[in-house]
Simulated scan of single mutants.
Amino acid sequence: MAESTIWWLLAGGAIVAELVTGTFYLLMLALGFAAAALAAYAGGSTVLQTLVASVVGGGAVIVWHRVRSKHPKNLPASANPDVNLDIGETVQVDAWNADGTAQVHYRGANWTVLHRPGNVPAAGPHRVAEVIGNRLLVDKL
């Protein structure tokens, strides 16, 4: 079996493993394996192929790690406006109950709202900060 075929099989195995585990770093290693396969096609020695796989795959992992560490972590789905379109919407709270909840009419239905801990409940417009189950966590505007 040709050396390039072994590198392509390793690249394919890394891609399959990434699909199973969801680890994006395995795709970076697959890039290294593909680069080694190209080095094998070019007639490079086994040592050169291994070096190319290590440098390209390892370099891609390092670059991806740095890029990913510069971006902030995603919010949980309950507070992420890209996932939940209710985040950032305004609701009108007329009165708060003694237990810290209130009832509002929002999107054609009655919802239970909670104020964020540490805030004093007050009537008026509030912004939806998070959806917790079937309750809205709100901040005073």
Rank of each mutant, 00 (worst) to 15 (best):
T23G: 03
T23C: 05
T23E: 12
L26P: 00
L27S: 01
M28P: 01
M28Y: 02
M28F: 06
L29C: 07
L29Y: 04
A30M: 05
A30W: 01
A34W: 02
A34L: 13
A35N: 08
A36K: 02
A36H: 01
A37K: 02
L38S: 07
A39Q: 00
A40S: 12
Y41L: 09
Y41C: 06
Y41M: 06
A42E: 12
G44S: 15
G44T: 03
G44V: 13
S45I: 09
T46G: 05
Q49K: 08
Q49P: 04
T50F: 11
T50A: 14
V52Q: 11
V52L: 13
A53N: 12
V55L: 15
V56S: 02
G57M: 04
G59T: 05
A60H: 00
A60Y: 01
V61S: 02
I62C: 10
H65D: 00
R66D: 03
V67E: 00
R68M: 13
P72Q: 06
P72C: 03
P72L: 05
K73Y: 14
N74V: 11
P76I: 07
A77L: 05
S78V: 09
A79K: 08
A79I: 07
A79V: 10
A79R: 15
N80F: 07
N80Q: 12
P81V: 04
V83E: 14
L85A: 15
L85H: 15
L85R: 15
L85P: 12
I87Y: 09
G88M: 08
G88I: 03
E89D: 14
T90R: 15
V91I: 08
V91D: 05
V93Q: 10
D94Y: 08
A95R: 14
A95Q: 14
N97C: 10
N97T: 02
D99H: 07
D99L: 04
G100Y: 06
T101N: 04
T101C: 02
A102H: 06
A102N: 06
